[in-house]
Design a protein around this nucleic acid. Sequence first.
RNA 1: GCGCCCGUAGCUCAGUAGGAUAGAGCGUCGGUUUCCUAAACCGAAGGUCGCAGGUUCGAAUCCUGCCGGGCGUACCA
Length: 591
Amino acid sequence: MKPVIDILDERIGAAMAKAAGGVRGAAMVRPATDPKFGDYQVNGVMPLAKKVQTDPRTVAELIIRTLKINDICEKPEIAGPGFINLRLKANFVADRLLEINADSQKRLGVEKTTQPKTIVVDFSGPNIAKQMHVGHLRSTIIGDCICRLLEFQGHDVKRQNHIGDWGTQFGMLCALFDKILLEAPRGEAINRDETLADIEEFYRQAQSLYKNNEEFARTAHVAVVGLHTGDGPWVTYWKGIVKTTTKHFREVYDRLCVTLKDEHIRGESFYKDMLSDIVAELKKKKLAEESDGAVCVFPEGFKNKEGQPLPFIIQKSDGAYLYATTDLAALRYRVQELKADRIIYVTDARQSLHFQMLFKVAALAGWAKPDMLIHIAFGSVLGENGKPLRTREGENVKLKDLLTEAVERAKAVVEEKNPDLPPERKDEIARAVGIGAVKYADFSNNRTSDYVFSFNKMLAMDGNTAPYMQYAYARIKSIERKGKDRGIDVEEEQSKVEKANLTEPAELDLAKHLVRYVEAIGAAAVDYRPNYLTAYLYELAQKFSAFYTNCPVLDAGADKRPTRLLLCDLTAKTIKHGLSELLGIEVVEQM
RNA sequence: GCGCCCGUAGCUCAGUAGGAUAGAGCGUCGGUUUCCUAAACCGAAGGUCGCAGGUUCGAAUCCUGCCGGGCGUACCA
């Protein structure tokens, strides 16, 4: 099914070309800014009129005269300085509704792209030996949403979880493992089931020992070398740490309904053997040079505080490599081995300079074209005090704790609102609502802005929140249940609709919005902005609520009820699809 | 200093290649329940879109300057 807006754009575009005698101009069909202007408005007449030096309203008249559109719209109206307003015919909307309902692929009438691309999405990227914290939330869920959107559009998405699993800090940690082993009583092997909390404690111990104990520091250095060369027990310790931590990642991802799996993990260590080659190649290409002992690329257009060229450092003066080096290696790998047409990096906005430089250097080296590299930046999660969210002790808020609190708070609301539900159902609702609220609040904010994290707001029943959306869905499901209780065969009845009967304003309004799901997905995907999707869904839920209060479903007459059941069903399917397929938020049948 | 982002209702925020009278939610005020979940719905009040110029048929949106805030800016990631 071709999106309505695209059909309109084509038809208007053709009529415009005729009217302007070959002078080209975009139709610029947009959703109407106000319902009283209809459903869509044509913004392209005025620029075109300017080109042909004619009064815009006269041009609009000419366009309308040749325009063949009465199969879709009511008579177009010219308004204001030269807008053409378009209002969809109820008949057309009714037909569309049935097409969406008949969509055998269950895609709600949304076509796949005709130009599928291979798109690498780099997101989440937590660190080994540490718990995931609130700083990983946005990258993880926004990245996941982008993957889901692109995949639904038909692209080949390659998720890459670029975890921090390499670096000198692991030398310390491995050295501590070794120490514990040596000091353990004979026969008592190191506990292989150590938890992440243990590892975090080890981490603290190791840091302190490293500072205060020379022998330990030496062992740590040996361990770093050992990790590189693969000698000694070091790699075994490291693998154990990785295993324990990734298990924790998995738990968090599952809880968040994020589609990241173990096979998407390709951490920094994966690229360790490519780093020297990256430096060598950049040197060979005369892009990298030595400066103050470090190997640097000085891409044009970047300046430091003193106005000197700003370096992109790829090798430290002590010979060690940096994340710049790893990122270059990863980038090259993704283009050359994963055959990426596009690479999307989902990280916080503070890293934008790094990515600007990375992309520039990659382009200079000929590893990628600039327009295939995209940094999707996002703002910070702030506490009520307007500063980055932290615990009272000033520590990072652990994601696990944050989600647990969200679920607990949701549980309290369920207990209050619906105390008679069975306990396991309450838990299910609390989980969906609590986790959903955290995710939805993040998605519904503008990606690029910081936002203030507030359990109270995200769990509110009013407004653009997960519970509101989930409630709308649950109410529809309740209608279906009630219908069945009354002996109405809901599926049968709506499947027999041959012509949707959209006479009530609330019905037509809801139906029109359902037809436009594809537009919301397109808008969200093209700018990588989940909030366009949440805005659409919220509007859908609002329109459903209006319909719900104005149009009885089960008590409607035989001429009305089938269409209303159909509207309910398609609304439920759209909400469910948007929430659970595209945003990764669970819906519940009952709240 | 330079660079990036931001400044929209009392509060939190939307505003989809510049479009018509700038929208929600919270809060405030008023109304709706013998009726499919009131975790809902309807209505009202509330704005010099930081300030000043500019570009043009038209600017919250683009350009310039200023004010205010956040972040970044050579060997952390």
